[in-house]
Amino acid sequence: MKTSSGSPTNKKQVKSEGHPSGDDRFKALDRTMKRFNFEKDSLLEVLHDTQEIFGFLSDDLLIYISTHLRVPLSQVYGVATFYHFFTFEPLGKHNCIICRGTACHVKGSDVITQALSEEFAVPIGKTTEDGLFSLTTARCIGSCGLAPVAVLNGAVHGKQTPQSMITLVKDVLEQETEVLEQGEAG
């Protein structure tokens, strides 16, 4: 049925069911929801994938999920805020997670957290103003044999001390500034 006088490109857009913003990441989110048949029960899985795709859960994402899964928005918000795995703010470019499990606690993980927080002037659970570095904590990452443990950009580092962690983070951040300087120079 031909009803609209839209150009061919417009039609194509409609067909792919993309987000009006044109953000391609929504296509990935659509695929996830489709995989679960848009079932209400898949809310948690969809939130997981959304966070993986977008990095954090923004309010328009929750609205998008709510409409597509037909779950009341208040429930989506309730679920997303219940689980501490979900974050509502974008994380820094580099992320350091300090394990707060029992074994790590006994071996002084809070001293490490405190030291990092002071050294890089970032409150625990927050990101530096330049958006480069976030310091977060985790309940237990299950590497208790190597306590105290930290995860820097996805890599697990065991048997750390405040000094060794500061050095590790400094290295990462220095590389970042080098890249920046090179970029400016070039």
């Binding site: 009341p72 208040s74 805020t81």
Partner: peptide, 8 residues
């Protein structure tokens, strides 16, 4: 379902 529990 306008309201729900939030946080924990």
């Amino acid at each position: 379902h306008a309201i729900d529990f939030a946080k924990r």
